[in-house]
């Protein structure tokens, strides 16, 4: 027999919960932001941070110090002041002075500014043209035919040879040198991007996207190029030191820049006779040059590693 009188009231134990439609729509996954992960990954390496600090110091020094020092390569006002000549590094002249009594410290930063500027501008131009052309190249069969022949012809010739000959024909000068450096070197970047685009182009998600009617240029810009960020950063980190190296070697030969522009290569060639007698004059520019390219390369490589989403797990 059912006990209806002793009916327990359980209503207090439960409360009615209203259904919240907004919460059910939310998918609970860990938050992922691409650039946030890149930064986290990038700054997790101590060597990278040290190198980044070095890069920043070098950049600040070479772009701010020359503004105050007013260094001029052609200045020979102290040439007759014997006390100013060949001072070894000391408190007033941190890196010593040369035969004309000019401070090597000023010379190095003025030279570094030129060398870094050339490297950065040439790298930016090469990468920009290379990526744009490479993307188009990878997506069109007609262009591919022509470009492949062009690439086969140019890529066989050593780049230094092209740069030397071109900077000779165009004459000395900052922009002439940059033109000589970039006029063919974008081809190898473009070829690299072309291969990557071709690999990505036929992946399932892109085939699906194309079937749904995405035009090719949108496909490349939205679907493929974001994947290539780390590849492009790797390219940049390799191009930058090599362009600085080429500039230095050309100035060393006396081919690239006009005679009134200071550059690390010019300093090295100018001071190479002092290698044993006043060794600081030769070795300090070499050391600064090595520091610039090594730190830029390592920062670039680690940035490339960090920008690869596969390292974010």
């Amino acid at each position: 027999m059912a006990d209806t009188t002793n009916k327990l009231n359980h209503d207090d134990d439960f409360t009615l919960v209203e259904v919240d439609n907004r919460i059910t729509e939310k998918i609970d996954t860990p938050k992922y932001s691409y650039w946030g992960s890149v930064a986290k990954q990038f700054f997790s390496n101590k060597v990278t941070i040290a190198m980044l600090i070095l890069v920043i110091i070098i950049l600040l020094m070479s772009f701010i110090q020359p503004l105050f020092s007013g260094y001029n390569l052609m200045d020979v006002s102290k040439v007759n002041d014997f006390a100013a000549r060949y001072n070894w590094p000391n408190a007033t002249y941190w890196f010593g002075t040369d035969a004309d009594g000019k401070s090597l410290f000023d010379a190095i930063w003025a030279g570094a500014r030129t060398s870094i500027s050339i490297g950065v501008i040439a790298t930016l131009i090469t990468t920009f043209i290379g990526v744009v052309v490479g993307a188009v190249w990878g997506s069109s069969k007609k262009i591919d035919r022509f470009m492949l022949e062009l690439y086969n012809i140019i890529s066989n010739v050593p780049l230094l040879l092209i740069i030397i000959v071109l900077s000779y024909t165009f004459g000395n000068g900052f922009w002439n040198l940059i033109f000589a450096m970039t006029v063919t070197s974008w081809l190898s970047t473009a070829y690299f991007i072309r291969v990557q685009v071709m690999i990505m182009r036929d992946r399932e998600y892109n085939v699906a996207s194309r079937t749904l009617g995405t035009p090719m240029n949108r496909l490349i810009i939205r679907n493929i190029l974001p994947y290539l960020t780390s590849v492009i950063v790797t390219q940049i980190s390799q191009l930058l030191p090599s362009f600085i190296g080429y500039e230095v070697f050309l100035s060393f030969l006396g081919v690239g820049l006009s005679p009134d522009v200071p550059s690390l290569g010019r300093l090295i060639s100018q001071y190479s006779p002092y290698m044993t007698s006043y060794s600081y004059l030769f070795w300090l520019p070499v050391l600064v040059l090595a520091m610039i390219t090594v730190s830029l390369y390592i920062v670039g490589q680690n940035l490339a590693d960090a920008s690869d989403p596969r390292t974010h797990m």
Binding site: P241, F252, G265, V286, T293, Y297
Partner: peptide, 11 residues
């Protein structure tokens, strides 16, 4: 790999 050849050769 990152040191410019010129510095490399001199060193």
């Amino acid at each position: 790999i990152s040191v410019p050849s010129l510095a490399f050769i001199y060193a």
